[in-house]
Structure formats: C-alpha cells, structure tokens
Amino acid sequence: MIDIPTIPIDQVAVEERVKRLNSRSIKKGSKVQALKMALSMMDLTTLEGKDSKGKVIQLCNKAKQPHAQIPDLPKVAAVCVYPTMVGIAKKELQGSGIHVASVATAFPSGMAPLSVRIADTKFAVEEGADEVDMVISRGAFLSGEYQQVFDEIAAIKEACGEAHLKVILETGELHTYENVRKASDLAMDAGADFIKTSTGKISPAATQPVTLVMLEAIRDYFYKTGKMIGMKPAGGIRTAKQAIQYLILVKETLGADWLNNQYFRFGASSLANDVLRQIVKQETGLYQSGDYFSLD
C-alpha cells in the first residue's frame, strides 16, 4: 500500500496569500509582457459534444495566428481536443511547433474500465497527441483507494509513451485543500508531468487558492526529488487580469524557471480573446470590442 501523508493546509492563510498577491499592480510594459507570456502558455481548448472538423480547423488557425492585425504575437502552446479530433488537429498544426493535447481516459468523468481508458489514451497517442490530459477516478480517491488511483495513473503514463501526461485532479470534486494536496502528491509520485486542476465541466473549476496549494505541492516535490512538474489551471479563467494573477502566483511560489510553457499552461477557450483585446488596448490606447476578434 502506498502511503501518502496528509499535509494540513491552512485555508485562511492560503486564501489571504492569494488575496495579497492579487493586489499587485502590473501595468504598461510589464503588463504587455505578461499578456504575451500568458498567450504563449495557452492550451486553446474545445471540448464540446458539438465539436466538428471545421471547428477544430478554425481553432488550429487561431492557435497559429491569434490575431491577424498583430502578426508578431506569440503562438499558443497547444490545442486541446477530444481523441477523435487529434488527427485533424495534428495535420493542421504540422510544422507549427504547436502541440496537440488530447483529453483521454473517458474524459470528463473517468467512469470507464481501466482497459477502456488505456485504449482511449493509446488511440490519442497513435493519432499523434503530444500531450495527454487524463482524469483521475475521484470516486476511488474520495473512498481512500489511493493505491488504485496511483496504479491507474502509472498505467496511463505507460500507455502515453513519449507523450507528456497531465493529470486532472478535478479539484471541484475533492472538497478540501488537504485532498487537493494529497491528490497532487499522489499524481506526481505516480509519474505525472503536469498536474491540472479541472476538466472545465464541473463548477468550481480552477480557483487561485487551489492553484496555490498545487503549486506548493510542486515546490515541495521539487525540493524532495529535484524534478520539475508542470502546472495547468483550467476552466473558469476568462479574463486577462485573472491570467496575470495566476502568473504572479507561479512566480512567487516556484520562481521564474516555471514561467514558460514547458512548465505552466492555461486551459481555456475564451481567455485568449480577452488577452488579445488587452494587448490591442495597450497598443492603441482604445478599449476593444469582441466584435473585432475571431470567435474560434
């Protein structure tokens, strides 16, 4: 049996620290830099039942060229889709350097036999996914079946082969910060390359206090093992202002080494447009309208 110690988390302190860091004022040049950095860390995501080939192609075009009026913007880090859309995205993004990420393992619930979840993962990887976003079995985790959760993550990691594995904890279902911390530790021990907050299908999705708890888990893991694990908050991050606040959390918890898209990502769909609006606002001095930015 694996033994994952319970690390007590001071809820008030975590929330206060987030609040204090959020009061930082990032303006002008540093704001533009932060906005561009946020754009380069984005996993542009579409995870809907109504996703179609056309929608995915559109999204890939947006990933390659976020806003035609400003051609020198950074590209996003990855496009995140369902396994059946990986092939299409892979073809569209060929040669662009943008990764294809795929959710797998019976996303978003994870309620399927392990064999099915492994097959799902293998399919995504065979289709060309560079990154796999898996979900843990929250039911098992909450029942204390840590060994099962650990073994599942390890099995999926093996199925990933070369592909990077992001482990979605679905923190909105874990109830306490202690559970978030424990799930983070467990996922990292089991071989996660990234830990990710949420599927985006459950409310609350990513929150800043939860992200701080996970970042601290990553920091402690680094001190223990010397291994750098990535972080991906996902869901509910809609404004450029929030994105900058997340970047501050990362900088203050893990340092500048994590401030790149190899170690930090945003999982988001509508965030990109708000970031673009703010960049154009900084360039032109005029507040922008959604009317002039592509939807996908």
């Binding site: 507040y287 309208s289 959604g290």
Partner: peptide, 8 residues
C-alpha cells in the same frame, strides 16, 4: 475621448 474611442 474614452467615450468616443471605446471600440465596444
């Protein structure tokens, strides 16, 4: 000027 310039 902000009233006049706001794109939305």
């Amino acid at each position: 000027e902000h009233f006049a310039g706001h794109m939305d």
